[in-house]
Computed example of a mutant assay.
Amino acid sequence: MAEQSVLLLVLHDVAPCTWRSYLPFVAAVDALGSVAMTWLVVPDFHQRNPLDNDPALLDFLDTRLARGDELVLHGYQHCDTGPPPRHAADFLMRRVYTREGEFYSLSHDQASMRLDAGIGVFQRHAWPLHGFVAPAWLMSPGTRLALRERPLSYTSSPHHLYRLPDFTALRAPGLVWSARSAWRRGASWVFNRWQETQWRQAQVIRLGLHPVDMHHELARRYWLAALQRLLEQGRVAQTKYVWLSAQISASVSQ
């Protein structure tokens, strides 16, 4: 039997200050039919946006869960509050590549505290939790060790999902935009269209959206058109955990 082709629609950086940016796009997606989404939720975005301060967002996420969507723990603060980088490599990763690599330099104890705090938020709201995604997908060795010790099923990088606790890699290539300037948006459109053709035979493709994408018409139009193209090609929209569970079941039955 041929393996089912899947797409994973993933909305990053969900927080009180960002989630409304997604609403017009989400309404357009909902109009297409039953398209499952995975929401990457930040418990206290930039240390000034606690989820509990936005009852409307909490109600909205409850509604999305009831529709069959998935909520994922996406860091805790989504900002790098560590000491200034002391080496060139660290400077490039923490100041040039991103300033939001929250888990890039954390010790095991620091990562454990933030993971437990985030898990506690999900437990308090009775939200099922299976996955953790580090901001910018950056994880220190201490973070990786802490993840092995927690009751989570998976984490991810730009091109893989990793089963926990052993970090077994499952290829899951992802499309993502850099939308903060006009030239980056133009380059993102060209590069992502090329990647779509390169990955046409891939069993799964991730669409990784960010709130900033929603502020630019070119990016919004691309994401909705890409989603429609992939659905028309016969791909089925699933959440990350549903897809991962299918992979685990298939490996057990072999």
Rank of each mutant, 00 (worst) to 15 (best):
L152A: 12
A88K: 11
S107M: 13
L145F: 01
R67T: 03
A2L: 05
H215D: 10
L209D: 01
L138D: 00
S251T: 07
V121E: 01
A111P: 12
A36M: 03
W177E: 00
M37S: 02
Y76M: 15
D69R: 05
R94Y: 07
E217C: 01
D62R: 09
S251R: 12
S157R: 06
R163V: 13
N192W: 07
A56Y: 08
L170Y: 10
V190H: 04
L227E: 06
A136M: 08
R171Q: 12
G33F: 12
R229E: 07
V252I: 14
P16G: 06
H12L: 11
D52Y: 06
V14P: 11
P43D: 09
A66M: 01
V252R: 14
W199V: 13
V133R: 00
F191Y: 11
L164W: 09
L65A: 02
V35F: 14
R144I: 15
F132K: 06
E196Y: 08
L51I: 15
F60R: 02
Q110W: 03
L65Y: 04
A219F: 06
D30Y: 13
R86M: 15
L92R: 12
H210I: 03
Y76I: 11
R144H: 11
G82T: 09
L9C: 04
L65V: 00
M37F: 00
Y241F: 14
H12Q: 12
S34G: 04
R171C: 07
W194D: 15
R95G: 02
L115D: 07
L57G: 09
L147K: 09
A136S: 14
A237L: 11
M139R: 10
A111N: 08
T143H: 03
V29K: 00
T143N: 00
L244D: 11
L11R: 01
A134K: 01
A15R: 12
R184N: 01
S188M: 04
S34W: 02
S5C: 08
N49M: 10
G131D: 09
W137G: 10
Q77M: 13
L23H: 08
S178E: 09
T98F: 00
R99E: 01
L175S: 10
F91A: 13
P43T: 08
Q198L: 15
